[in-house]
Amino acid sequence: MTMYVLAAVLFGVGLYGLLVKRHLLKKVLGLLILEHAVNLFLVEVGYVDGGSPPIRLAGETAAAFAGGAVDPLPQALVLTSIVIGLGLAMLMVALSLRIYERYGSLDADRMSELKG
């Protein structure tokens, strides 16, 4: 249960950083924290108390493996989600660089060309 609380707290921290902070790189960090909060939650969903890693060893029967291992599916999901997060973060950093090039600043308040 405490682990779920940790994921929720991280989610809040990430959301705060992403939406409230004015510095663009702090927004990038907020996004990363937000994503890893969700990833942490997904891994926790598949956790089995005292379970073994979901890698089958030679000589282990399928039944024994399925009984003892943690759920591998969320781990596969998290791997995919990490890749997506990586792409997002890279794009965000590239956009920040462009913005710095145009405005000479990474302060979101200085970006004023767009209204509402």
Partner: peptide, 10 residues
């Protein structure tokens, strides 16, 4: 795009 990306990521 940055604004769109932030909201899209949330």
């Amino acid at each position: 795009a940055f604004k769109y990306l932030i909201l899209g990521a949330v």
